[in-house]
Design a protein around this nucleic acid. Sequence first.
DNA 1: GGGCATTCCAACCCGCCGGTTGGTGGCTTC
DNA 2: GAAGCCACCAACCGGCGGGTTGGAATGCCC
Lengths: 208, 208
Amino acid sequence: MLGGMAWDTERTKRLLLDAAVDEFAAHGPEGARIDRIATAAGVNKERIYPYFGGKQQLFAAVVQRELEQLAAAVPLEEPDGGTVDLPEYAGRVFDYHLAHPHLLRLLQWEALCGDGSAPVAGEGRRAAHYAEKVAAVSRARRGSGGAGDAARGEVQLPPADLLYAVIALAGWQFAAPQLARMIIGGAVDADPAARRAAVVDMVRRLAL
Amino acid sequence: MLGGMAWDTERTKRLLLDAAVDEFAAHGPEGARIDRIATAAGVNKERIYPYFGGKQQLFAAVVQRELEQLAAAVPLEEPDGGTVDLPEYAGRVFDYHLAHPHLLRLLQWEALCGDGSAPVAGEGRRAAHYAEKVAAVSRARRGSGGAGDAARGEVQLPPADLLYAVIALAGWQFAAPQLARMIIGGAVDADPAARRAAVVDMVRRLAL
DNA sequence: GGGCATTCCAACCCGCCGGTTGGTGGCTTC
DNA sequence: GAAGCCACCAACCGGCGGGTTGGAATGCCC
């Protein structure tokens, strides 16, 4: 039609996926409406079925693509040459969630709708990804362990717990904004920089 | 009929609420089915409308009741005279989530289904409740602030941030079990005591 | 016994929504 | 031009599910 360029099936699929990300993130696999996705994409809804098979498969495709984009946007190795600043990393995780609120919502829908104990799609790859991050944290901390803290009788937190804390502290206020709003007083949207600074500060204290 | 005791409207309402908790926690306000709730309660579904008004109101009633139960079961102030042990409080929050997985799921559904910025049902009371907790934390810390930490140039974390951290650290592994499983290696179910200890330890470090 | 409220049962209405189908026209390839 | 795929449009189907209604049984109060 007005877009003119027919014959580009990849573009059609991409338009559908783009619209589906918004719709699924907003309403979840149950509440999402096929018609809304098609309308938002500027594509007829029937196109979904030859390309993806149905609503559930479209949701799976959306989650998969978002995870791939995450893996591409957040590389394992630090680009600046190997030094790992964990509090700053927490800040970047916060930034990512702030800029891409879809991902966490999709993961929450996945957690809520799926069986809690059953492995999710692509769990193997994703677990390996996190194991790599834990290893990176462990590597980075081995050198930076201050003797002063050791003198205080403190034992460092296990790297996995630390990574868990980073993700929880950075992510919780996006996952449960109504709680964060009621506790903090202002929403995340009110002053993102302050929230980011708080997360960075908390991780800094934990990483001692 | 078989229950015999008709005429006990409170009992009927309670039966409906009990069944609704399970149904809503499992499927959310959209995916929940009125018929399933009524059947599980052993009550006819029409009873819902005179008592609660509809599906959404029933969901709100369920959330409210569960929150009241949490507040009653996990007080912040020690009953033995007002001392506040924040790490231990985090541990008790963890215990509560472990024993009552419904609550956090309900809050997640609420967060996902509701408009992110619009106030949720009963937000005023709930916000006041959290403000009270923040005040208690603030009161408790004023005395315990170690001079040693001040000598190190450390400023204490704001009480609200601290309470936020407690709730986030204790709750995240129940809210996103698949992430926790992939990061930590074992699920929460595998070794709850270890996870609890980790949460308590992290809060202890933050509360310094 | 006569009102009145509560509950059960059993349909029923109606809108929504996932998915399908048939027809038309355009673009590409041969 | 003929064949074939791609996309649009429009209508349609069928089931599901929230919510409603009417009728009958039962217990409470006067």
